[in-house]
Amino acid sequence: MSMDLSVPETWRVKGALYRLEAARCKACGRIHYPPMPACPYCGSRDLERVTLPSEGVLESYTVVYAVPEGSRHKAPVLLGLVRLGRVRVVAEITDADPSELRTGMEVEAVLRRIRSDREAGIIRYGVMFRPKLKGGSRGG
């Protein structure tokens, strides 16, 4: 019996992975994601948790064919550089064919299975982005 994924790690990062929790520096006003112990821009430790917007714009994307072990079932992996307000995030893109991706397209956050640890280990859930649903003015 063995597990590849750390259970405490999966638990620790749920704020960032489930809800896009970021940190805002009260000294310089900049926001960074994921939250760090001090502001990467100015070093201040006076930080507050903020939640990033769930909708954004695809600034770049790639189609990863050289996939890491355990991800063959969803190959190729679509990876996006997503701008959410003033912050950029790297996350997987889902529910899209490689041919539909365009830089500048609107995307929205959804919760998905990022990884599951073989047959019996922990399942890691987190935010991925998908092309914004049509009729999406209703998406809020």
Partner: peptide
Amino acid sequence: EVQALYDIGHAGVAGLLAR
């Protein structure tokens, strides 16, 4: 701790930067 929990592979970020 967060970014590489995704299946970004060894080349994913370089691919994003290339585009």
